[in-house]
Nucleic acid binder design. Sequence first.
DNA 1: CTAAGTTGTTCTCAGTTTGAGTTGTTCTCA
DNA 2: TGAGAACAACTCAAACTGAGAACAACTTAG
Lengths: 242, 242
Amino acid sequence: MNEQDFLAGYDPRDYPAVAVTVDVVALTIREGALHLLLIRRGAPPYAGHWALPGGFVRPDEDLAAGARRELAEETGLGGERLRRVHLEQLGSYGAPDRDPRMRVVSIAHLAFAPDLPDPVADTDAADAVWLPVTALASRQLAFDHARIIDDALERARSKLEYTPLATRFLAPEFTVTELRAVYETVWGHPLHAGNFHRKVLSVPGFVESTGASTERGGARGGPRAKLYRPGTARLLHPALLR
Amino acid sequence: MNEQDFLAGYDPRDYPAVAVTVDVVALTIREGALHLLLIRRGAPPYAGHWALPGGFVRPDEDLAAGARRELAEETGLGGERLRRVHLEQLGSYGAPDRDPRMRVVSIAHLAFAPDLPDPVADTDAADAVWLPVTALASRQLAFDHARIIDDALERARSKLEYTPLATRFLAPEFTVTELRAVYETVWGHPLHAGNFHRKVLSVPGFVESTGASTERGGARGGPRAKLYRPGTARLLHPALLR
DNA sequence: CTAAGTTGTTCTCAGTTTGAGTTGTTCTCA
DNA sequence: TGAGAACAACTCAAACTGAGAACAACTTAG
């Protein structure tokens, strides 16, 4: 049999039906706390439970494109602001019984976004909110989404160590103190301000100076801070220490 | 449209079929060189090309279980020796056109194994070999497997930095020199023997002494080396530097 | 059996990085 | 105007790293 014949005589439906979805753990920082985007399910199973935004991969859509589309649908984001959101694949979750209806393999993604507007509840979702991760314990999560979120948070914490992705939680220009606040929020403990400052400026390509400073000092005083933008490095050498 | 409503009262066969496969990048060290397991495809598409071992996920099989099954089928491995192989998920590859037959999403896995016997060519595979990674450039690889292998090798290199997984390439008891050889092989450059020794013994939980030594000195002389087994740490703090 | 060469392990030492704290200055708020 | 806060720079000891040397325990060649 040659390649042509093989393709012609091939029936995809002979293979076991598996649904493929993409889910997104979207993280942002609001009011000094780490938040993630959750949807409240309107229909069974798990009606009334909270779940990650996600849905079926469309037939001609790349996995990452599907995840970005889901994120756009729930946040109402588009254009340049959507493009600035960092999106990476987290991992696949495919336990045979993770969805009671059928075999569903979900490709989970992780997104880092600057502070975004409140989400848009679309027709399908009863509700959509940015929820502080500290409030997760009290929520009933659908499917294996609690596990996915755990993995996502650990991935986020570790990515801050060796990549410059912390800048993705901030506006295009930011101060070293704002950057430190991201680390403190995600890692959950304070860092030594002076040492952090020294380290950030010494790691090649982490940040570059804009030459400008903030318009005003901090809310409770202090001098104007210098402004930086993300540098060109994609990995931090040497890495920051948690 | 989101997952919830779509799945409620839904017949899987109505939806465009997506096939889910697992592929395995299995690495081992033979004769001082990093090798990976490849299959020569017997049937179209890509008949005659080399490919990663892999196949469809079975209906009631977890993703990791599927990957381990594929590995077992191609290596003929089983029982305790199979269980000792480190297997982790690498990532999912789902570009719409990556397989000419239909939409296929492949969950790629990465395996670290000690030196294993030659693979078993089963009915599906025309051939199965451990190929030195340095010989990859001259092979025609099927699908997007070249890309998957690139990602796997970079993941392997980076995992050696911050996890004790290098020990998974070795027998249950090993010398520091054997461990250093793993690093040198995977990273592709020599390391300072004295500094490596100091570092390995100082990182908590990396290795623990068995109290025993090798029966003989090295092939070309030298004292007997002390034997170690893997420690209990799952992450190396502080990490090794490449 | 001996000599020459190899290897595992420990040690030394200078240079770098880290953790912790201090200092000086600029700014906001009361 | 004074008190308090925060940015940024500096200091210093401790820890870690890279490079090399030392030395004993072993091998094989002759």
